[in-house]
Structures are given as C-alpha cells and as structure tokens.
Design a protein around this nucleic acid. Structure first.
Lengths: 114, 114
DNA sequence: TCATTATTCACCCTTTTGGGTGAATAATAA
DNA sequence: TTATTATTCACCCAAAAGGGTGAATAATGA
C-alpha cells in the first residue's frame, strides 16, 4: 500500500508505540534521559530484549542516542508523535464533515416534509 | 508488560492504525459508510485480505459493522483515537515538565555564578 | 429452483516480532 | 594487565502478521 515516506514513517512511529514495553520506556524517557541499563531495570525481560526495543524506538526517531564513555544515553524525541496527532485530527475532520453533511441532508428532508 | 485493559486497548488501537492499508480504509470510512467490497475496490490485494484488515479494525473498535441483507455496512468509530491523543498529550506534558525543570536548574546555576 | 453476488472460513506460506542465550566489543577501575 | 561494567551482535525459537486460494454460507434475482 501507499509506500511514500510520510506513510512509512507513520507506520514505524505507530508500530513503535503499539507495544506496552516501548510505551513504558518512552514514558520514563519523557521525564529525563537515561542509560540502557536504567531503562531495563523495571522490566523482567532481559537487557538484550530491552536493547532491541530501544532500537525500534530509535528507528522510529522517538529516541536519540549519544555515547558518553561506555554508557549510551537515551533521550526522548517527541516530534514523530506530532505526525500521529495530525493524522488523527485529519480523520476526525473528515468524520465531522460527513456528519455535518448528513445533518444537512436530514434537515433538507425535514424542510421538504413541511 | 503492564497488562491492564486500558493498555491492551491502546495496543490494539495503535496496532490497527500502524498499517497503511488499514489507515486508508479508515480514511475512506471517515467520509461515509461503505460495504466490504467498496472498501476493497481501491486495493490490489484480495477481498479476503481486506476482510481480515476490517476484522482487525473491528477488534480495535475503530469500525462497527451492521448487516443489511447480504451486505455488511462498515462505519468509522473515532472514539479509540481519543485514547491515543490522550496518551500522546500525557507524554508531551511530562516532556515539557522536564524541560522546564532543567531550565529551572540552569537558571539556578546561573544565579549562583553571578 | 438455480445462478449470482457478498462475505467469511479454513488452510497454507513467508516474514516479522518479541523473547532468550552466549560471545564479542569497549570503556573504566584496580 | 586484568576484572568489571555497559552494550551490542549473532543466533535460536515460537507466535503473530499479512498475503493468498478455494470452499462454505447467505441473500437476491431470474
């Protein structure tokens, strides 16, 4: 389907946040930067697994990494979420528009009955 | 991870809209109701496949079905998208809060230097 | 009744996901 | 130099996703 880059980046953003572990990681990072180990701490899953989730978030550009010595510091990047907001608002706009159109039709029908 | 029902419903909503075919279906439905066949028409993939995507959207409560004779009429339900909006806004709130806290710390540091 | 139309169901297949393990790499500390 | 610590890499595995095909079901039209 529609393989333009805008659509593909929405795909990766949405896929990234469609997982509760990754959402928890983002929630944590929204407060402050943290190392991979810090992020992994609250989870029962392996550090390796968390590391992979972080990669997914990085690919979606929701997280940015910078190395300080042997530590990898992760930081939340909210920009891609704006695209999601925009997409949702656009759907709602269409939806409202169609409701209003329906409303218009019904009123018209009413007028004719009178 | 966090397997409460709120989280699980966010999961299914986000997973549902993380696919471009399903987003296209929703975009179409945001304008007006349509039958399965109508929705399938613009896609190269099989009707069967589209039918499965519709099921995914139904499970996520983004689409509602009603049968009229042998036709299944689908309708867009925007409610679950509100949960997504809320989640995003909450992250942004934390993020803004942490930026302001950082700003506060920097100002404090500045004051001490003077 | 019979053919057609609208949809799903039951399978099949390949790719992706999410998890795990153990070895490799890289920086720090002793 | 040698341990220790922080992280990833290279695999392995099971389950889910996304696509397909052909048969079943159900309503409609002739």
């Amino acid at each position: 389907m529609k393989a333009n880059s805008l659509s593909r980046s929405l795909d990766s953003t949405l896929h990234a946040i469609a997982d509760p572990t990754r959402r928890a990681i983002l929630r944590r990072l929204a407060r402050s930067e943290a190392r991979v180990t810090d992020l992994a701490a609250p989870f029962r899953i392996s550090l390796n697994s968390v590391s992979k989730h972080i990669r997914t978030l990085e690919r979606a550009k929701l997280v940015e990494r910078r190395k300080v010595g042997r530590e990898h510091i992760l930081r939340f990047r909210p920009e891609p979420l704006h695209r999601v907001q925009e997409w949702i608002m656009k759907q709602q706009e269409f939806w409202r528009a169609s409701l209003e159109a329906l409303d218009g039709l019904l009123n018209q029908a009413n007028d004719m009955e009178e």
